[in-house]
Design a protein around this nucleic acid. Structure first.
Lengths: 175, 175
DNA sequence: TGTATTATGATAATGGTTCTCAACTGATTC
DNA sequence: GAATCAGTTGAGAACCATTATCATAATACA
């Protein structure tokens, strides 16, 4: 790593944040997340390290839901020194600052997605091929309000997963 | 075990099913479940064994959500010979015939509840004390219908869990 | 009763996740 | 720049829930 005078953010993060060739409509999207993670770390007295950055940028590049192990294997190709424990630690950090969230598939493994400034959405999980379809749950907020008044329960978040068969698996004759 | 001529169901199951002193309004509730499990097993060419019966009746007696390990330790007190593997196997059977279902807490452990002929309901899980409050989700069926038409997705079931703080934890000052 | 088949428990194995710990890093102070 | 200090790291061990293995036991049925 060779930095040259980063004024505010570490150089590598600035370089990444300025990269507009990632092929997404909004140029601000990824930069905002990177900056947000950075300031979260600083606020907590934590350090924006190389490893944390590599893991976050890999998540940003992906559109799928990824398991910790998939992330580990992928970033390992970019940087042979990154350890599995650091992947888990970083994912927990990202969850902590609401930049990522995890979905549980049936098998007990956690899958992660970047989750910042996106509309609340839930998941339709195909029990046959494991594919995940996202959809908006327009009623979940209402539901949480009802909970609050009925049980005096303060909702912080929710997980709504529908299990079934996706169209292509059904076409392929899965029962 | 000493049976004496069970005409249709094994004697121990008949005895249990006839037991009306369990303190619940409907006398049929538990008996129906036991009978349903029994006929499910027979239909599948499986056997209604002592162990399966002990595990089911323990679940019937409980009102809480139980982990496989809690169930194992409890039935172990009733019958020292029951093994952990059998608990898992039986829980899977009960799930298979829709008599039990599992809720996932945040920690990745599965918790089970008897789930027969009850209205569909979901769970409000206190992230502080782990207590589970049940509530009815009136919109989940609608949601699944929408999914079916929008994504051509055949829903078989869903899991809807709301995370937050219960009233007593909030009173106790949990943030 | 005998025989075929299913179930069982102990134990090992698995797989995801977390813990431990010594070495390392980056800031801060002198 | 050296000393110091707290946060971070990777490797591997440890942990925990769950599953697989396998020899033995229970069950159903002829």
């Amino acid at each position: 790593m060779n930095h040259k005078q980063a004024p505010h953010l570490p150089q590598e993060i600035v370089l990444f944040a300025q990269n507009k060739s990632v092929g997404v409509g909004s140029t601000n999207w990824r930069r905002d997340i990177v900056a947000k993670f950075h300031s979260y770390l600083v606020d907590q007295g934590l350090r924006p390290t190389h490893q944390r950055h590599v893991i976050l940028t890999y998540l940003l590049r992906s559109t799928r839901h990824l398991s910790a192990d998939e992330i580990f294997k992928a970033v390992r190709k970019e940087d042979v020194t990154i350890g599995k424990a650091t992947v888990f630690r970083t994912l927990r950090l990202l969850e902590g600052c609401k930049l990522a969230r995890c979905v549980m598939k049936g098998n007990g493994t956690a899958y992660y997605e970047i989750h910042w400034d996106r509309p609340a959405h839930d998941h339709a999980i195909c029990v046959s091929c494991g594919s995940i379809q996202e959809f908006e749950c327009m009623d979940c907020q209402k539901q949480q309000d009802r909970l609050a008044s009925k049980f005096d329960f303060t909702a912080m978040g929710h997980r709504h997963e529908v299990f079934g068969h996706c169209a292509s698996c059904r076409r392929a004759g899965v029962t």
